[in-house]
């Protein structure tokens, strides 16, 4: 289970109110796309879910419990850039989380324990379509491959919630379509709730179960500081998509089957 419950959330930076009174219930296994004009606070909202930033007022509950005030392994993340470690190979990047978890002191595994993790990592690398690139460094990968790597690295930790901040924004349309198929498959297969910030409406409507729009209700220059953005629209996609279940209406587009042909 991984339901998020956000209650009367406010965020201020000094004098500037960025978000005001944001409340939303995100059910377990949902795929929420956050859209809205630039600068309205989408990334800020995501950073609060991540624990990188603390809200000024309000509560964020994960499965009924308040979120810890720092990032942790229950919430995975992929940013637009800098999501992978340049000094580790593809395999090293994907193994890192498991190694850190198992070896608190050295942060490294050896021998049998390492081989087990390596096997799991190789399976994950294959799942995101990076087979054959295991020993490459991120600088030797294209932008799309780096984002696939970032996904693999996050997903091997089996997070309850996956947070994505414009993860595919810098990719060209062909690559983006491919990675959308991958994203959909991963969401169907892994037991997680996804919150994704995007500027691409098409992306929002092809992937999400629910599209949520942030906007400032008052946006005149003199009001900008005093009024923040809040949720103005919350659209459930119809026909509904359900994680792990093929859609009765358009199985080829919305169901997990769509990916099996890949």
């Amino acid at each position: 289970m991984s339901a998020l419950s956000i209650k009367n959330l406010w965020k201020e930076y000094g004098d500037q109110i960025v978000l005001e009174n944001v409340s939303i219930e995100i059910e377990s296994r949902a795929f929420v796309a956050l859209v809205g004009p630039s600068g309205c606070g989408k990334s800020t909202f995501l950073r609060m879910l991540l624990g990188q930033e603390v809200q000024t007022k309000g509560d964020i509950l994960l499965d009924g419990l308040p979120l810890p005030r720092e990032p942790g392994a229950d919430r995975g993340v992929v940013f637009q850039r800098y999501s992978v470690f340049p000094h580790l190979t593809v395999l090293g990047n994907v193994m890192l989380g498991k190694e850190l978890l198992a070896s608190r002191l050295a942060g490294r595994l050896f021998g049998k324990a390492r081989r087990a993790v390596e096997e799991e990592a190789r399976a994950m690398i294959a799942a995101v379509g990076l087979m054959g690139s295991e020993s490459k460094y991120p600088a030797q990968l294209s932008g799309g491959m780096q984002q696939r790597l970032a996904l693999a690295q996050a997903l091997i930790m089996r997070p309850k919630v996956l947070l994505l901040d414009e993860p595919f924004g810098a990719l060209d349309p062909g690559i983006r379509a491919e990675i959308h198929t991958l994203m959909k498959r991963l969401w169907h297969e892994a037991p997680m709730t996804v919150v994704m910030v995007t500027h691409d409406m098409r992306e929002a409507f092809t992937l999400a179960t629910r599209v949520v729009a942030f906007e400032r209700p008052r946006d005149r220059p003199e009001e900008k500081l005093r009024y923040g953005a809040t949720i103005t629209r919350d659209i459930a996609i119809w026909p509904p998509r359900k994680a792990g279940a093929p859609s009765i209406f358009r199985p080829d587009r919305d169901g997990p089957v769509s990916s099996q042909g890949q």
Binding site: G72, R81, F85, G97, A150, Q153
Partner: peptide, 13 residues
């Protein structure tokens, strides 16, 4: 980049 440190935190570091 801060993102890198945050990413490490989400990997349980």
């Amino acid at each position: 980049p801060r993102e890198m440190i945050v990413k490490a935190e989400t990997l349980s570091a």
